[in-house]
Each structure stands twice: as C-alpha cells, then as structure tokens.
Design a protein around this nucleic acid. Structure first.
Lengths: 139, 139
DNA sequence: ATATAATACATGCATATACATATGTAAAGA
DNA sequence: TCTTTACATATGTATATGCATGTATTATAT
C-alpha cells in the first residue's frame, strides 16, 4: 500500500471520469447525472421528501435543494405540502418526469453495461462494495 | 452483481464522503482538498504547467484554470511565461506556498492513516487499483 | 511567406457542492 | 400556555465542474 497515493484524489479522479462517461450518454435526453439520480430515486419512492433523498443520494440538504430546482423549473418534479407536517414538502414525478425517466432508463442501462465491460472483474464488483463501505465508515 | 446499483452514483457518493473527510481536516490550514492536491502536485513537479496538472489531477483545463485562481490570489503559486513558448505559463510554489504545503502535509498524512484504518483491507488497497483502472479505461 | 491547423490558456454560462445561517413549523418541557 | 428545542427547508457566499467558445501563439503545409 503506497500511502503517497492520496485516497481523496483517487476517488475524485474516478468520480470525475465516470461522471463524464454518464454525462455524455445522458446528453441524449438533456439530463445531468445528478438530475438522473434524483429522478431515479423519486421514481422508486413514488413520493418522498428532501430529507429522504439526502440519505439516498448522500447529499447535503442545501445541495439537494438546489439540485432539485432545475427539475421543478422544467416541470419534471412537483411538490405538495404534507398534510400532517407543513414543514414537509412531498416530492413526486410529474407525467413529464415519468416520461423522461423512462426515456433515460435504457441509456443508463447501456452505460451500466459498458462500465461492467470496461472495468471488468473484480473491479466492477468492487465499486459497490467500496461505496457501501465508504457510507458505512464515513457517513 | 446488482446492476440496479448505479456505478456513477456509487462513485459520486463515495467521492463526496471522502472529500468531506479531508475537507474537514484541511480546514486547520484553510485549504480546500482541490487546492491541496494542486499544491502537492506542484510541489513534486517543482515547475509545471496547466497542461501537465490536468493530466495528474484528471481535471478539465477550464476547471483547473479556475481552481488555480485562489492559490495565485492568496500568494501560494506564481507563474512565469515560458522562454521558448510564450503560450506556456510555468507554475511553481512561492515560499508561502511551500510553507503552507509543509504545514498541511502532516494533516493530510494523518487523514490518509485514518482512512486506511476506517476502510480496512481489502477496501483500502482497492481504492488505488480501482482509480488506476478508471483512468485506464475512461481517460 | 502566408494561410491554415494545432496548441495553450481564459471567459461565459449552467449546474454541483457544502458551510454558515436564516426562516418557518412541530414537538417537548416548564 | 408559552418557551425552548428540534426539525425541514431555503438563502448567501465561495469553490468545483465542464462544455462551448474566444484569444493568442506556435507549428505546418503549400
């Protein structure tokens, strides 16, 4: 183990590279990767909150708030104040949001497949184990 | 292998977490992680260029140009136009830059050690292998 | 020798990131 | 009740990120 090799730079470099890879493919549906992640998370949750999304995406509350903005602005997400707790804003996909997600899905799946092929094993399998470990020890 | 687990989100989550970890420690010397990476790279190269740093840091030219700005502004880096090619700006550490890097180094080393302990093996060792692989197949 | 292509770096724009802090709402305690 | 505490979200500020594009300089081709 060479401790001259910065763990942080290693992860940031990798993150930048894979982000560019997905970004490039998602251009076809005019989505940024962060926006796709949000749409995907909201799609699975049906209805969720800023708070819940923070956990899933490991994003700061203030960052998430801002990342949501373009999606509201472009009509892909909608909010309604929670019936029981008016502090909560429930977030869900609009019809346009669902349509966009369905459109982006095969592009994302193709990107996933290409990453598996490019990384090969054992690296491809290690990505998720490593991410889980990072979340476990640093979050 | 669960391909429902987005590789990109996995890497971005991890990158955000480890960045916050290093960021927190480097606050003691008022440096952002990206700035530390630049200082460290310039320290090893003695004299370098925007172009060379792009390769080391895996950063877009325009991003790097901007990330350099605060370091010039605060007097940690200096430039001189290359003798042979006036398009090139040679970048080097000022005395203040060297002093700051020396001050940051033990903090960074401590952070590195803590990451090794937190991640444990085999994960800690995999970080760099994985980063090398990402650079190899995506750059 | 001059036009063209390639290279190095900078700027406009939009989003990404998070800390400090502010605002508004709900829950808990006196 | 009403005051304090906790919680959910938003805003101010600064840096991070990269695409499209612009400017200046060097190298190449005819």
């Amino acid at each position: 183990m060479n401790t001259d090799y910065c763990f942080n730079l290693a992860m940031r470099k990798s993150s930048r590279l894979i982000t560019q890879f997905y970004e490039d493919r998602l251009k076809a549906v005019d989505l940024k990767v962060g926006q796709f992640s949000i749409l995907r998370a909201v799609f699975f949750k049906k209805e969720t909150t800023n708070k819940a999304l923070q956990d899933i995406l490991v994003l700061d509350q203030t960052t998430l708030t801002r990342n949501l903005k373009p999606l509201f602005r472009d009509g892909y997400l909608q909010t309604s104040v929670d019936d029981n707790d008016s502090r909560l804003k429930n977030i869900s996909l609009t019809e346009a949001g669902k349509a966009l997600y369905e459109q982006a899905l095969p592009i994302w799946q193709q990107a996933q497949q290409e990453i598996v092929e490019k990384l090969g094993e054992p690296q491809a399998g290690q990505v998720h184990e490593l991410a889980d470990k990072f979340v476990k020890v640093l979050k």
